[in-house]
Nucleic acid binder design. Structure first.
Lengths: 156, 156
DNA sequence: ATGGGACCTCCAGTAACTGGAGGTTCAAGG
DNA sequence: CCTTGAACCTCCAGTTACTGGAGGTCCCAT
């Protein structure tokens, strides 16, 4: 049985974040000691690792919740799991494409930055200029979702 | 001179977001009509497009602010712009690797999900299991981040 | 001159955490 | 057995980057 701090160390998740996940029902309420401290078993460790892995890949908690709900009810038809998984796959592929083009652009920016002054720095120039940016694609139409959440800073 | 709604349409930025950028000092206070409505010129359009482009590429506003401050003072060295871009590139590559492995796992899940019940889907198992996941690298205790930006949040 | 759409400010809410205050519990050392 | 201090508890406020609504004002085409 792990205390919350050990679970934290084990999974690279900050302690308040674990409690937060419990608050919003992503993690079930764990056992408690006589003195009211949380104690976690292996299942919880796996579940938290799963959540963190998904979060790290940029999935919103709502999607993660859908996956978890599904796996909490193992008698459900596989069809819905399949649907969700396929949806996730499409999302992943979309993000992959988008990141690949971003990578290209960043590389080009860095290559062009020859170390002079800002006046002739192409990093800023190329960020102001949209002409050759593939990423423009997903600014032009008006899709439902534009809040792609920004990359999380690494946990220290 | 554009009204805020036209600037919004022009740049694909929601109206409240434009006002928010003004509040936090990313956009300067624009001219106003006699009746107190905002009017924007071409420079502002460019600046907003720059901001949106950066956001779209995943830069946090603090980095964008740094970039803008930098470009407002073009005699400075471009080294810090380069640093920011390199930092973004590392992050992007990390996410690319992670997503590629998730894609593989999702494909495997979908292949295995041949119409039974969720119990046989191994959703949790495959995502909780890091054995073959490249993303593990940065879950292990590797404190290497020293990027701290000052929490200056005052407008004007 | 008027009507309705676009604009104004202010405030509250969202996701997904993060951190601090003030108090309690656990377990190792004396 | 008792002390001590690190780790735990709850509650609450703050963070980033927006988003939306209420209630009121302005602009301009008819």
């Amino acid at each position: 049985m792990l205390a919350i701090g050990q679970l934290s160390a084990e999974t690279g998740t900050k302690v308040p974040t674990i409690r937060y996940y419990e608050d919003i029902g992503l993690l079930p309420q764990p056992e408690r000691t006589a003195g009211n401290q949380r104690r976690y078993g292996k299942r919880q460790v796996d579940r938290l690792r799963f959540i963190r892995h998904c979060r790290d890949l940029g999935f919103p908690l709502s999607d993660i919740r859908a996956l978890l709900d599904l796996s909490d009810d193992p008698d459900r038809s596989c069809a819905s799991a399949d649907t969700i998984a396929r949806h996730q796959l499409r999302e992943v592929e979309r993000r992959l494409a988008s990141l690949a083009s971003l990578r290209q652009e960043l590389c080009r920016m860095i290559d062009q930055c020859a170390g002079g002054t800002v006046a002739d720095c192409h990093v800023i120039e190329s960020l102001a200029d949209h002409a050759h940016c593939i990423a423009d694609r997903h600014m032009t139409p008006a899709p439902m979702e534009q809040h792609v959440d920004p990359p999380r800073r690494d946990p220290a």
